[in-house]
Simulated scan of single mutants.
Amino acid sequence: MSFTLTRRSRSGLTVVATLTALALTATACGSDGGSDSGSGSGSGDGGGGEDLAITFIPKNLGNPYFDASQVGGESAAEEFGGTFEQVGPTEATPDSQVSFINTATQQQAGALVVSANDPEAIGSALEQARDIDIPVVTMDSDTNPEYRDVFVAQADAEGIAQAQVDLVAEQIGDEGEVAILSAAANATNQNEWIELMEAELEENHPDIELVDVVYGDDDDQKSFDETAALLQSNPDLAGIISPTTVGIAAAARYLSTSEFQGEVALTGLGTPNQMREYIEDGTVEAFALWNPEELGYLSAYAASALAAGDISGEEGDTFTAGDLGEYTVGADGVVVLGEPTVFDESNIDDFDF
């Protein structure tokens, strides 16, 4: 079964892609709980809109995915008259973001947007920010819900997981051994997707066996080395799923010059600019992702709405995110960007991020 996803980007380009058996639903992520302590305007340059000083703290710097979300965040801040800064660690480790959060709090940032490396490790630092009414938005990878006001999710978690399973199943004939090359072992989004992929494989793909899950820590060289080790340890491997843009690009780089090119399928989540050459040389047939620039753009607007007091993160709150239009906050303070897009040789040249 297949159907077509259509979405319009901020540039006005309509994107059409076909996903096999992908059913996206707007379900909530996280657990009950949460605080309203960050729903007011920031005590520094807060207030939303003009003069809002917004600080983005990604999992790590030098990551093309977060370079793209930075472009979106900067664009949004320019539109609503705020200022933008992106700071963060060079390595995506559980506690590496704490010092950057503490510094932003001490400087009384107007709002924080954080992609969490761990659901718990940065919780105390975020609570300190919210204690002085700095709104906290998590983006891409969530904390526990009580540590933030709103989580801007890329897409529905079940849909992301199923899209990747469906892609690998189609490419390996729905049978054989597969492995997962993930990012950090503590990454909230990665672990949720892996759990959902395991359930999807068990329930609907009995002839596919998940033989290993390894972690490249969103580091190019480590992900490259883990790919090599996977193939050495599993000589019958039919496919690799890498739900991380750093991982899939590193795995593709390894496969492209190895005897496994064209023999071992690779799919997951990647950016078109990283993966274009591997689509063109046949290393990769298809992969998926949402637009990370739009994710950063939406997250900045959510932060602005919180700082202005237009929303508090309660279910049913609505706000307008510039050219993306109106969004509604769902259960547990979750805002969903939209559906992922599948990229292959037919459409990859339509994108530049």
Rank of each mutant, 00 (worst) to 15 (best):
T6C: 05
R8D: 01
S9K: 11
V16F: 15
V16S: 15
L22Q: 10
L24R: 06
G33S: 12
S35I: 11
G38E: 00
S41K: 09
I57P: 01
K59T: 05
F66N: 03
F66A: 04
F66I: 09
G73Y: 07
E74S: 13
E78K: 14
G88R: 10
D95P: 00
S99L: 10
F100H: 07
I101Q: 11
A104L: 07
Q108D: 15
G110Y: 06
V114A: 01
E127R: 14
I134A: 08
T138Y: 03
D142C: 11
Q154W: 02
Q164D: 04
A169F: 04
D174F: 10
G176A: 06
E177I: 03
A179C: 09
N186M: 06
N189W: 08
Q190C: 02
E198H: 00
A199Y: 00
G216I: 11
D217Y: 05
D219L: 09
A238L: 04
S242G: 09
T245H: 07
A250M: 07
A252D: 03
Y254Q: 11
S256Q: 08
T257I: 09
E263C: 03
M275S: 07
R276W: 01
E277N: 03
P292W: 11
L295K: 08
T320N: 13
D323A: 15
T328D: 09
F351S: 07
